[in-house]
């Protein structure tokens, strides 16, 4: 027997990278977030071997949920194969032994940056959205302590005013992605920089959505079957992106969220942003989608425009 033989093996890294203390803290905070839909829960936010701002908030949530039997889908801008999505998927599966898929309906956990899949998610699935800035009022109040007081007072006057000013100046609301929403009639929330096309998908959804900002150290949730409404004026309804007439060059599909790809002659080609859905359309039978082929949202009357 030598000293080297006697020494215990030092394997260095925990299951799913984070140590148990970190996971327990995240889990405690996730439960509070679910109990307070749309409310930003502060959390410690561990450093991961991925740069801050590259999805470390979402990644921490995923790592606190994931187990070896999970099937994980990771997307960035709707694509499974974009470099950041590929890298995060490689990391998650490497540290957890979970399987991965590009099929939104087969995944148990979907981590996403900037998109919600076109196919309707179902009960039991968890959508983890990466959040660069959790504060919907950042543009009108940069002091986060003051913004927190405004949330406490449900004082969203400045935000309404900002939307109103856009109307006066441009005759329409010019907010693009990250369209602010009211959750369970209490908290205004940033849905993360998803396009307005995806915003309605959070309303009365069957799945659980967890949103996390690693750098800003806040996480929040939209439980299943919860009211989520975009801020809109009675006479100026909320509008999704107008992509009518755009046809996906790969599938011929219409009325799904498209990427616009510039051509050299100044025109544009269009392609669906959700690559998992493209794959399914080409090779299999896709499930129900949030918007039908005519662009109607599945909950009738929710989008008024």
């Amino acid at each position: 027997m030598t000293l080297e033989q006697l020494a215990l093996e030092n394997h260095g890294y925990s299951y799913a990278f984070l140590d148990e203390f970190a996971k327990r803290e995240l889990r405690r905070r996730i439960l509070k977030a679910i109990a307070l839909p749309g409310y930003q829960v502060p959390y410690a936010s561990r450093e991961l071997p991925i740069a801050r701002g590259w999805g470390t908030g979402g990644l921490q949530v995923t790592l606190s949920l994931v187990g070896p039997e999970d099937v994980v889908k990771v997307i960035d801008q709707g694509a499974d194969d974009s470099v950041n999505a590929a890298n995060l998927r490689r990391f998650i599966t490497r540290v957890s032994d979970a399987a991965s898929t590009t099929d939104a309906t087969q995944a148990t956990i979907i981590q996403s940056r900037h998109r919600i899949p076109e196919e309707r998610l179902h009960e039991g699935q968890v959508l983890v959205l990466q959040v660069p800035d959790p504060e919907p009022m950042r543009s009108v109040e940069h002091d986060i302590s003051r913004a927190r007081e405004m949330h406490a007072d449900a004082d969203y006057g400045l935000l309404w005013l900002a939307l109103y000013e856009q109307l006066v100046r441009y005759r329409r609301v010019t907010q693009g992605a990250s369209y602010p929403v009211m959750v369970h009639k209490r908290y205004v929330m940033s849905p993360s920089p998803i396009p307005r096309w995806d915003t309605p998908k959070l309303h009365q959804a069957a799945h659980l959505t967890l949103l996390a900002a690693g750098r800003e150290k806040r996480l929040y949730a939209v439980p299943p079957y919860t009211d989520v409404y975009p801020l809109e004026f009675t006479d100026v309804p909320f509008k999704v992106e107008d992509q009518r007439g755009w046809v996906c060059i790969r599938t011929g599909a219409q009325n799904k969220f498209m990427n616009e790809i510039p051509n050299e002659d100044g025109t544009s080609t269009h392609e669906m942003s959700d690559t998992g859905y493209i794959e399914k359309l080409l090779n299999a039978q896709p499930g129900d989608t949030y918007y039908d082929n005519n662009g109607n949202f599945y909950i009738r009357g929710y989008i008024r425009s």
Partner: peptide, 18 residues
């Protein structure tokens, strides 16, 4: 232990979500 903690948490998360 890790597996049991995670399974317990997932049950609590499911229960609180629904």
């Amino acid at each position: 232990t890790e597996a049991a903690s995670r399974a317990t948490f997932l049950a609590l998360m499911g229960a609180l979500s629904r």
